[in-house]
Design a protein around this nucleic acid. Structure first.
Length: 465
RNA sequence: GGUGGGUUGGCCGAGAGGCGAGGCAACGGACUGCAAAUCCGUGUACACGGGUUCAAAUCCCGUACCCACCUCCA
């Protein structure tokens, strides 16, 4: 069976056929680094990380490019508001984003290009569009350069819209545009903007428009034709439509497949509108581990809208602990890679069907627990479970998880182990003497401290509840 | 106005013509001194109204409600 994925443009699930056998080029629109990342922001990071892992698992050599937009109106506005240089804000938020990705075990891309580092490439592309008659410099002296939407007959093909049906932006002042739908490739510098936020160009100093960066950077790192382009649903229009139009107008074949992840909302609203900052990734990670948050995201299909709630996250965390528990009990410490169960492969091959894939994980866990309950060996199943989790980026033993390994955490665990161990010995003595009141008192005391006791055939075990 | 998506059991969340995905919670049983963990068992779910079909949550028509995008939101 082949890997099949849903292509936004054709609106159907299609076989994935790479342009070059054995290789896949993937470009994902990353974030504009203007504020702390919230839970919604990291969904595309996780979703496309799963895509990348799956393609890799299928034996493809994946070149994975995910950009960051490090210059735009909002960054300039926010930085001015906060009284700091725009590049300082962008850089600080970029580092926050890196931390969030790392906490969720999202592997770093092959390369993460930023817009400000690729101005010459963008200028080159714009010049080409002007030469070909698909772009023009505004004649109002602004220094702006626009893409000429009417010059490109297939404009609207990605989102199946016709130009005449589109509403012109209400807030867009027509400036030097020939058509209100024309979009900026290059924005002439305004006096209100810092000198440092402008670059030289044939049209005077200025900065790039939003869409052009992705066309230029995808071209540079993946070539004029590549396999998959991804991003959030909201980017379909205008961003991706414009990217495709300008790239193809420049003579590039561009992406073969378009993938778009759905939103995570709160209270039915997009998160950017939500009050407070309780849903930033760092805030959520104070209450849940990164694996748990990732599991919550992966357990839903990437094209399904998720209504975020702590109750649902709680459930997910609960379920994930059951999986970990099994791994623990089965002693799945080895890293001999196991074969993936066929239903798991089928689920993943079907447009990354992670919900069905997770169900297969649970099936294996239940079966494994059954074996353990009857005193049999479950190591083989545990190996399978770990192999499946690994593909989903959820293997608890993956050293890539922050905090794993021998840091302060490990030393703390050791210290607690010694202290709890003493109490457990006392409890075992009390139980042997049938002094259950004393035994339970110890258990209750530990529970109050957040430590759960579990009696197993090999003696009591403790864990953080 | 245009384009696309959604409405599934107490909750989360899959599926897309025919044997009840899976999880969380709940209840009963086994195990346990009691628990915990684990296993076994327990559920007349598919927004509404028509239609097609031997068979519809799934296809068709209509209705209601919700959501996203329509030129710098993941």
């Amino acid at each position: 069976m082949t890997f099949r994925l849903y292509d936004t443009q054709t609106r159907e699930v299609r076989d994935f056929v790479p342009l070059e056998e054995g290789r896949a080029g993937v470009y994902v629109c990353g974030l504009t680094v203007q504020s702390e990342p919230h839970v919604g922001h990291i969904r595309s990071g996780v979703a496309f990380d799963v895509l990348r892992r799956w393609l890799t698992h299928r034996g493809l050599e994946v070149t994975f490019i995910r950009n960051v937009t490090d210059i735009d109106d909002k960054i300039l506005a926010k930085a001015a508001e906060q009284g700091r240089p725009w590049y300082n804000l962008a850089y600080a938020m970029h580092r926050e984003l890196d931390r969030a990705y790392a906490a969720l075990n999202v592997a770093p891309p092959t390369y993460e290009p930023g817009a400000t580092g690729h101005v010459p490439e963008m200028v080159e592309l714009i010049e080409r569009l002007v030469e070909r008659g698909h772009a023009y410099a505004a004649d109002d002296g602004s220094g702006d350069v626009y893409f000429d939407v009417r010059s490109w007959p297939s404009y609207g093909e990605l989102t199946s819209q016709r130009i005449d049906d589109m509403e012109a932006a209400q807030d867009a002042d027509p400036r030097g545009k020939r058509d209100p739908r024309d979009f900026a490739l290059w924005k002439g510098r305004k006096d209100s903007e810092p000198e440092s936020a402008s670059w030289p160009s044939p049209w005077g100093r200025g900065r790039p428009g939003w869409h052009i960066e992705c066309s230029a950077m995808a071209g540079k790192y993946l070539g004029t034709a590549f396999d998959i382009h991804g991003g959030g649903v909201d980017l379909r229009f205008p961003h991706h439509e414009n990217e495709q139009a300008q790239s193809r107008a420049a003579g590039h074949a561009f992406a073969s497949y378009w993938m778009h992840n759905a939103w995570i909302t709160t209270a039915g609203e997009k998160m950017s509108k939500s009050l407070g900052n309780s849903l930033t990734v760092p805030a959520v990670l104070q209450r849940y581990r990164g694996v748990e948050l990732r599991f919550y995201v992966v357990a839903a299909h990437y094209r399904s809208h998720v209504e975020f709630s702590f109750e649902a996250l709680d459930e997910a965390a609960q379920g994930f602990r059951r999986i970990e528990n099994f791994l623990d009990r089965a002693g799945a410490t080895g890293d001999a890679p196991a074969e993936l169960p066929e239903p798991f492969v089928a689920a993943m091959d079907d447009d990354l069907g992670t919900p069905a894939a997770v169900a297969v994980v649970y099936d294996a866990v239940r079966e494994g627990n059954r074996l353990l309950a009857s005193g049999e060996d479950a190591a083989a199943l545990a190996g399978q479970v770990r192999a499946m989790l690994d593909v989903l980026g959820l293997d608890p033993a993956d050293p890539a998880w922050p905090g794993s390994g021998s840091g302060d955490d490990a030393r703390l665990t050791q210290a607690v182990d010694v202290l709890v161990g003493g109490l457990l010995e006392e409890r075992t003595r009390a139980r042997a003497e049938k002094d259950f009141a004393a035994a339970d008192a110890i258990r209750d005391r530990l529970k109050d401290a957040g430590i759960e006791i579990e009696d197993t055939p090999t003696g009591p075990k403790w864990s953080i509840s």
